[in-house]
Design a protein around this nucleic acid. Structure first.
Lengths: 194, 194
DNA sequence: GGAATGACAGATAACAATAATTGTCATTCA
DNA sequence: TGAATGACAATTATTGTTATCTGTCATTCC
């Protein structure tokens, strides 16, 4: 019924487009199938449910975000500065998506609200990255010793205002960046050896 | 039509009871009037709108919270410990209300979501208390110098996980208190002179 | 034979008709 | 005379109905 063979990747792209156009509330599997020119039964051959479709779209985006976040850790910069860059890169990626692609970002927020595994996996990734740079900072003598796991959790908890999608509606504040930097500075100061 | 004269205070109490029983979605001004045994017109003599009623209920509760918070500042304790107690007292007050009186706390959350002046006034109060103890801490040499306004904002932003009603659904986590203490310790460490 | 289809039952959403609530105010009551 | 009432219009919620969607699966088509 179509030229190209139907594969998971193009279904994800079509779903992304449908979510962008209709939003997470109105988007249907039938819309996705219509956009692809196939029956909705064919979509269900590749994805077990509507929820799995949405999760695949958000996972693909979060993979990009995580790449950007991980990229800040490749340089030979000192751990405190690396932690700052890690956090601000994550904030910037989410702020940009929330502003430029609000419907897709809304889908992310919906998944987070319903405790999707995609979102907990993302949190686990960020926690791990933060934990790793804290360990390096402790080893290098930049950060005071402590339980890295608990410290990483505290860093994520303390910055939720700037990365948790429940706060997306407040991300148009003019002083947002200044406030984010103030919190990050406070945290870095708190981690440092004295 | 009733023994006692109708006054604002008893209307607020009746509204509180109706909100507790029906929740913020289902509670109506007619319910309040029925509970008081008066017509709803009489309620409107004392309060201009349904929104004003809900706000009065929440303001009365927040007044109590603010008293508790302010009470932590009366002792002759050093500023860092006072800031810790201030924050943990505020957290505890909200955690308790969310657990013991979920419908009323839900009303607070609803007001916060719709940017009610009651909530911004509460935020302003807490910000001011935090700013004051930071100033004292700087003067006493406990805290490093800095812009008190921005620092207070950073402290509130960094602890939103533990006091913002949008997070109430997560306040049953077993490690909540430990995580709150970890964040507060990190913040206090960040504020301290080095 | 493996991919695609569309008919199907159960669940969900959209809609219009109806009922209840909000807020006002002229009137009543004590 | 000031507080309380209840009729009222405008708005908002609820109900019952209809249409659409989700997910399955026997059948069809390369």
């Amino acid at each position: 019924m179509r030229g190209e063979p139907l594969d998971a990747e193009s279904i994800v792209s079509a779903t992304e487009e449908v979510l962008r156009r209709h939003g997470p509330e109105k988007a249907t599997v039938l819309d996705v199938a219509r956009l692809l020119g196939v029956s909705h039964g064919s979509v269900y051959r590749h994805f077990p449910s509507k929820a799995a479709l949405r999760e695949a779209v958000i996972r693909r985006w979060l993979d990009q975000v995580e790449k950007l976040v991980a990229a800040t850790q490749e340089t030979g910069t000192a751990p405190p500065e690396r932690l700052r860059r890690l956090l601000l890169a994550m904030f910037a990626a989410k702020w940009a998506k929330a502003g430029e692609d609000p419907e897709l970002f809304g889908t992310f927020g919906a998944l987070a609200a319903e405790h999707s595994t995609v979102c907990s996996a993302h949190t686990a990734f960020v926690l791990d990255q933060v934990r790793a740079v804290i360990v390096e900072g402790v080893d290098a003598g930049d950060f005071a010793a402590g339980e890295p796991e608990a410290l990483a959790r505290a860093v994520i908890d303390a910055t939720c205002h700037f990365h948790d999608p429940v706060y997306a509606v407040k991300w148009n504040a003019p002083d947002l960046e200044a406030r984010a930097e103030a919190v990050v500075s406070l945290i870095l100061s708190g981690l440092r050896t004295r």
